[in-house]
């Protein structure tokens, strides 16, 4: 299942999962990430915190690692590129830096709307790649039986003091982990998934940062972890 050369993990229907939290299609040279939350520190600063700026640097580091695994021509951000829902000059500077980072590598940048992107009205709600619809996931805009990719819920695997971002995958669904290291997420073993994801045969693929591991069906995860703890 794993491509040992690039560290990429085989997902459904030709999608490759990267340990950084992105999806890659080598045939179309496209990558999809979600929930970057650029300017998280500026949003906290507006409420009074005095902390080091870090999100942009962290984003660059992760993108570079991901781009080393497979070359791409287009990067789609499936919503929540930024943290602040209001206009924020520092965040805008960070977004401009990200754009030049990508332009310098000749990568086209596509931004989809998320619930945090209110300061950039008029963004597309969805995009389609190889018959998969890519959305943020905060509002449902899907037709029945369509294959889709979403972000928004920041899934994580929690167990024995470990917190690892994870993908949720099924033959027709992929939920991306947050690309931002600041995002706390929903614990997929115990937390409630949104109605649109319920009943789907999702598997949890968790990232250690360098590689990905399949932890099996989400629906039995809680019971398996519990039995493991009680052994």
């Amino acid at each position: 299942m794993r491509d040992s050369r690039s560290g990429l993990f085989d997902g459904p229907d030709g999608w490759l999962l990267s340990p950084e939290g992105g999806l890659i299609r080598c045939d179309e040279r496209i990558a999809v990430i979600a929930d970057v939350h650029l300017g998280y520190e500026w949003a906290r600063a507006a409420r009074g915190d005095l902390i080091p700026a870090h999100t942009l640097a962290d984003t660059f580091t992760k993108l570079e690692r991901m781009l080393d695994r497979a070359p791409i021509d287009r990067l789609i951000v499936a919503g929540d590129l930024v943290e602040s829902t209001r206009r924020c000059a520092s965040t805008e500077r960070d977004v401009a830096s990200l754009r030049s980072f990508l332009a310098a590598r000749s990568i086209e940048f596509v931004q989809l709307a998320g619930n945090h992107d209110a300061a950039s009205p008029g963004l597309e709600q969805s995009a389609i790649v190889s018959e998969w619809t890519i959305i943020h996931g905060h509002i449902t805009v899907l037709k029945e039986n369509c294959k889709f990719i979403q972000g928004h819920i920041h899934p994580v695997l929690k167990a024995s003091g470990i917190v690892a971002p994870c993908f949720l995958t099924s033959p027709d669904t992929i939920v991306l982990p947050a690309f931002s290291s600041n995002a706390a997420g929903v614990d997929v073993a115990t937390g409630a998934l949104p109605p649109g994801l319920k009943g789907r045969p999702l598997r949890c693929v968790a990232s250690s940062g360098d590689d990905l591991r399949d932890f099996g069906p989400v629906c039995t995860l809680s019971e398996r972890l519990r039995r493991y703890r009680r052994r």
């Binding site: 998280y40 949003a43 507006a46 409420r47 009074g48 915190d49 005095l50 995002a183 706390a184």
Partner: peptide, 15 residues
Amino acid sequence: MVLRNPEGGKRARVG
């Protein structure tokens, strides 16, 4: 460094 009572009373929830 981090305010207990942030401006506007609300904290950035994402973290």
